[in-house]
Amino acid sequence: MSEKKPALWLRIFSFLVYVYIYLPILILIVFSFNTQKLNIRWEGFTFKWYEVLFNDSNVMLATRNTLLIAFISTLVATVIGTMAALALQRYRFPGYALTESVLYIPVIIPEVVMGISLLAFFALIKFQLGLVTITLSHIAFNIPFVALVVRARLHGFDKSIEEASMDLGANELTTFWRVTLPTIMPGVLSGAMLAFTLSLDDYVITYFTAGPGATTLPLRVFSMV
């Protein structure tokens, strides 16, 4: 689209939307330094709540769990999802259409349904709920997002650079590491970023697959609200 300056009303409107988006976050930040506990009235500046937070071993454990789950699920989903993106973008094979549509399921199914189905499944196979089930579930919903993002970025990938690499004497493996992967890296990174964000932000799937023992930051925060 053109770079003509947007109309004044459009700029004002957009500014207000940004205010709407940032207002809650700003309020949270400001009031996290408030001495008063319950009231939304500014009483004075304090770091007290951060001290309480960092001394709360439960919160720290939940934070560690959250990061661990996000890290592992991102790593696994990025590797597997990138492979799937390469397969779907560059190859035709039996079962192509089926896999492609299955990949969309976690995107178009309400989270609550996915959550209860995983809960029911783990219960059926008598798999102890905990960090492992949370991580497995996060991988499950992250794979499609990674695959779809990487695939979108693969669009327009010039296959001849791989041929050029082989032509210049690199075998398939060297070609992948030296040419293919560096070329698709921006796509892979944005897929990984998305996966990490989704995993950190997830409440619903975690809620159903956590079981009594394991807690993550979102669950902890929910119980405190």
């Binding site: 650079i161 041929e163 690499s165 560096p182 070329t183």
Partner: peptide, 15 residues
């Protein structure tokens, strides 16, 4: 990669 020929591609295929 085992052939003694090299190619100049239409799209150049530069890395």
């Amino acid at each position: 990669y085992l052939r003694t020929v090299n190619t100049v591609f239409q799209s150049y295929a530069l890395f």
